[in-house]
Amino acid sequence: MEALDIPLARFVLLYLLLLLPLYLLRRLKLGLGREVLISVVRMSVQLFLVGIYLKYIFAINSLLLNLLWIMVIMVVANLNILKKAGLAVRKLFWPSLAGVVCGTLIVLGVFLFLVVRPTPLYDARYLIPLAGMLLGNCMNGNILSLERFYSGLRKNEATFLSYLLMGATLKEAVHPFMREAIRTSLAPTIATMMTIGIVSLPGMMTGQILGGSFPLVAIKYQIMIMIGIFASLVLSMVTSLYLSLPFAFDRMLMLRSEIFAGKKKG
């Protein structure tokens, strides 16, 4: 069983559905119209390009090409993390990338080599969507944790300094800030796991069911993904935060102001 294809004429109808929310936003004078249009255009173009690209990548299915694709999306995700977290790419590119790579590859390895075991193990049909899903979540979590951690330290410099004066090592002094950042960043994922399946059917599961998989198979994949997301989030956050410390603090153990992106946020 395959999902029903949507004919082009009817597909265009979807865009007409946007007119209603756009009208409401306009009436409320929210000034979001331009932003919404740009985001819809970007979303459509990006997805079409990826669709075309994936078609070839699935057909070719070469280890090297697949790995190259994953590397590219990890770098893009990393740039996005730092940009959204208001941090200087020049200063924190490597530690943050290390977190992304570590969180994604370890979990992906477990998925492909131990749990799913597709043939070949690097089968693009599994590797690419799984990597994308892990990275997407990893990205959002890392944006939150890095932003919370470093803005918390910047705002509470006196408290941080008082820890150093109480004899704390750098790790001890940043620990309360790290705990807070990780806790906040994990909250949405934990909340999702609490309610998943009751209110919403997650996107991937819906996709698989529409694509003709048995619900029980789709559920197994979904549970795998949720556990994977959680594991990769924690791995990447902890790795990025710890590895960024030597880049973010000077020899007096004070936070370097250069790690923040030039433009002040909000």
Partner: peptide, 21 residues
């Protein structure tokens, strides 16, 4: 930097609004 740890041992900084956390 090489002395800062030892220096910090002797000093207490009491800010306007102490952070009790």
């Amino acid at each position: 930097p090489e002395n800062i740890q030892q220096i910090r041992q002797d000093l207490a900084y009491i800010p306007q609004e102490p952070g009790v956390s």
